[in-house]
Design a protein around this nucleic acid. Structure first.
Lengths: 133, 133
DNA sequence: ACACCTATTTAGAATCATTATAAACTGAAT
DNA sequence: ATTCAGTTTATAATGATTCTAAATAGGTGT
């Protein structure tokens, strides 16, 4: 608990009950995972014996993303996918099962972007590998 | 015109007036371009002196995508982006201006996906390079 | 502990892209 | 020309996300 209180305080977010519970669901696990808001809401209901308003889930996820505790995954879907793995990495997307799979940086050769855009710098390089049967 | 009639016939799509007009807007140009449905609708209104129902624009774009005449660009946005450039290539995304820029394959080093997923094969490898100031 | 102020939560409404519906229309084959 | 499946269309429905405004709760100073 204390580590989440610190984490939130350090980023200027008040450690409210809801935010701490969402931290537990998101970060109290060895494995990182991918989720949509819909899936996260279900997970919260199941894991914590407390209902959190949908608006709060949206607010919190966006706040955490802004602070770098979550990453949005660029993918074409009607829903937005997030990742609790915020390290530099990539994704497989299984078109049939509609599932994401992590692709560590070392599983993709080094990527060297040769083209430069004037006055802009590269913030991130993300690879999406679509899979079919 | 005839080339589009053939193009449509060859893919089992009836060459209707609307589809031919959308072909003109999409493919009668040297440069390829990126668009959302909203932008395409505006372009059609301006370029062709004829209104095409929004539903038809959606239907047609999806039909063309299925046939490989358009590509969807994986990006997190509330709107879906399409590309008339269907060659194997990548994108810059300028976060500030919310604009896409093509990144030819040769501008990105060769990408070698080392991890394999059982029973699945790679359909596409897409790189999104986010730009900031 | 109390009061106060602002950040946060909340239910519900609003928005907006996209998809579904069902009736009218059209291309193409007979 | 007739017919029929494929298309188009206006409109309604859907569904994810954002907005709103009132209620609540941290945190600070007393």
């Amino acid at each position: 608990m204390l580590k989440y209180i610190d984490k939130l305080r350090n980023s200027g977010l008040r450690p409210t009950k809801q935010r701490l519970q969402i931290c537990e669901v998101l970060f109290d696990t060895d494995k990182t995972f991918h989720f949509t808001i819909y899936e996260l809401e279900k997970k919260i209901k199941k894991q914590i014996n407390n209902r959190i308003s949908l608006a709060t889930v949206y607010n919190t996820v966006h706040a955490f993303e802004k602070k770098g505790y979550l990453k949005q995954i660029p993918i074409n879907s009607n829903q937005t996918y997030f990742d609790t793995n915020v390290t530099d990495h990539h994704h497989f997307y299984d078109l049939k099962d509609e599932k994401l799979i992590d692709l560590e940086n070392c599983d993709v050769g080094p990527i060297n972007i040769l083209k430069k855009i004037n006055g802009k710098k590269i913030k991130s390089v993300e690879v999406l590998v679509k899979l079919e049967d």
